[in-house]
């Protein structure tokens, strides 16, 4: 698997799009730091960007890479290599290369602005952890979708739709449900519903940092316990881990059944 991973990774690292992605983060990082001249504010703005953008880029890159490397995949399938190895290797290759762009692209400007000397290193670390998780999750989802769809356009469409659903529509439905049923106790439902969407989970991790004072204004004991202690952070991070593993398992499963 390491070999496949290595080839996919270097294949991507050398592609034009990786540079564009890396450059994008470099520009955003420097621009935000230049405009705000304040690490903390730049991190807050970036968190808002990362939560929406990283899943989109992950989905698009995942789908694109899957379809554009189909022939390469067939070449590999004829070699004495397990299927699981091939797909997980490719998946990890792309997820790592995207994460690499994210880490380097944001890391350079922030290091240049003296991140190490500031108290913001933990928030920045959280930003990178969330970004990396979202990359791994959405590339895996993109791979799982592509594996089930022979048709490139369809696969691409479903991928974008999934992103749109997770990033916007889900929250809309969520809010409508909350407002409709606000006579009932909703805190369990609310927490459960936010665990079912990795974008919401990441957003909550960020809320825990930025809006803890507002979150603690809510009366529910469950909320208090969840947000008021370290539980929220631990639960959210471990749920993100589950969200990474499940689509990877889907990749393994559908790759085992598929005809090429």
């Amino acid at each position: 698997m390491i070999k496949i991973l290595k080839y996919s990774f270097f294949d991507l690292i050398r592609s034009r799009w990786s540079y564009v992605y890396l450059l994008f983060y470099l520009i955003i990082g420097f621009a935000l730091l230049f405009l705000n001249n304040n690490l903390s504010k730049a991190i807050i703005t970036l968190m808002n960007i990362v939560v929406v953008l990283v899943p989109m880029i992950g989905t698009i890159f995942g789908v694109m890479y899957y379809y554009s490397s189909q022939e390469f995949t067939e070449l590999l399938l004829a070699q004495p290599i397990k299927r699981r190895t091939i797909f997980l290797g490719q998946y990890l290759g792309i997820a790592l290369s995207l994460s690499f762009s994210l880490l380097v692209g944001l890391g350079i400007p922030f290091l240049a602005y003296g991140l190490m000397q500031s108290g913001e290193i933990w928030n920045f670390g959280l930003l990178l952890i969330v970004g990396t998780f979202l990359t791994f999750i959405f590339v895996a989802l993109a791979f799982a979708i592509s594996l089930r769809n022979e048709n490139k356009i369809k696969g691409f469409g479903y991928g974008i739709l999934l992103w749109l659903f997770m990033a916007v529509i889900y929250d809309g439905l969520f809010l409508i449900l909350l407002v409709t049923f606000d006579d009932y106790p909703l805190d369990k439902f609310t927490l459960a519903a936010s665990f079912l969407n990795p974008i919401d989970l990441s957003r909550i991790l960020i809320l825990l940092k930025l809006d803890i004072s507002a979150l603690l204004g809510y009366t529910g004991a469950l909320f208090q316990q969840y947000f008021g202690t370290g539980t929220g952070m631990i639960m959210s991070l471990s749920s993100l881990a589950i969200w990474t593993v499940v689509p990877m398992w889907m990749i393994v499963r559908s790759s085992g059944k598929k005809d090429f």
């Binding site: 080839y7 294949d11 050398r14 592609s15 554009s68 490397s69 189909q70 022939e71 390469f72 067939e74 070449l75 004829a78």
Partner: peptide, 11 residues
Amino acid sequence: YLPQIAQFPDN
């Protein structure tokens, strides 16, 4: 195995 269509990683 020699596949029908020869397409390789472009990079």
